[in-house]
Design a protein around this nucleic acid. Sequence first.
DNA 1: ACCTGAACACCGTTCAAGT
DNA 2: ACCTGAACACCGTTCAAGT
Lengths: 210, 210
Amino acid sequence: MRPGPRRSISQADIVDAAFELLEQKGMPAVSVRGVAASLGLTPTAMYTYFPSKNALLRAMVEQLLSTIDLAAASDADIAWRDRVHVLAGALLARLGEHSGSLVLVTSGPLDGTHALGLNEALIAGFTGEGMPHAEAARAAVAVRAYVLGAAALDAAERAGRETSADNAAPEALWSDAAAFPLTEASTDAAGDGFAWGLDRLLDGFERRAA
Amino acid sequence: MRPGPRRSISQADIVDAAFELLEQKGMPAVSVRGVAASLGLTPTAMYTYFPSKNALLRAMVEQLLSTIDLAAASDADIAWRDRVHVLAGALLARLGEHSGSLVLVTSGPLDGTHALGLNEALIAGFTGEGMPHAEAARAAVAVRAYVLGAAALDAAERAGRETSADNAAPEALWSDAAAFPLTEASTDAAGDGFAWGLDRLLDGFERRAA
DNA sequence: ACCTGAACACCGTTCAAGT
DNA sequence: ACCTGAACACCGTTCAAGT
């Protein structure tokens, strides 16, 4: 009783299986063949659900974004600045959970329902603070860019720690470590740079308004 | 006279060939086998020059960053704000030239010579404006994050335009386009959002200093 | 030291065929 | 409609062998 004309699983099941693989074996493991195998399916059966691997990846992005709580973003009892921090922090955390999320997010335009919902919440929040709509839209883009970039920097750094040998940086003859004294001196001063930078960005918006 | 014990090409030649392929056929074409073939080499010969494909990608990042002019960043005749714009703009442009640059930059920590040099120039510039070193370092990280994120958003958008059919966003039943009125209304108001956001970030730094 | 050729264990995707 | 099996044109990487 192997084959059956009845649809045995859903698109959501496939996306879940893909995340399971991503979590346990990393991005290289989420392949069409790998996901299919983890569900007891043939690779070709996958194309009944998604027209391409990229379509699967984009569905994953949507699932990823669906877990961030937009309700908190529109809670007027909390200061807008705090709400942005919660939203941005949640997004960064989600993107950072799996090392491959960044390539997921770059697999296509962020035009899924949840991606648009997040953008909508950001614009609404900024206009609620008295920003003209045109500026609020640009502020939302800036915040998205900042969060994504921070996630990218995190991902890049982690990519180096996971492998040491054959993944090394180009050597460039390398005189001594003190060739970049300012950078060198700041490696320990990192702390929570993400929140700090976000606050500067928000300060910039406020200053503009004043 | 095919084989020869003498090294026929350099690492730089390989990186150049890889960029040539990237420009002409896109990221999927820059494979170990593809680059080797474009140089008349066997795939295995590549491992004489780079220990892995990732090492090649990281060398490409360094070459990419080497083309941005750090001298302009330390020219005290120009206002610091303008210098940041030039630096950030050049970086964004380089990252945007090839659609695959973003995955390049995420292939490992940005600890190559040119990556560190860029960071050094940023920190030096901010301290030159009277910022304490700890804050200058964090400001440099924030700027890098913002630029990288803007590049990621650009790349994501372009990834959608290149293919239309099998790369589509998940449908999600889709009632009507007016479900996200704020986002909808801002699609045309984009303009040069990059410079605007960067200016807000710099405003935030200044406000902090005041 | 530099390179080749064969091989291993994979990919995404298409197509004809089964139920 | 949903699924399988075979096939096509690829991957990154390793290994033994040649010069």
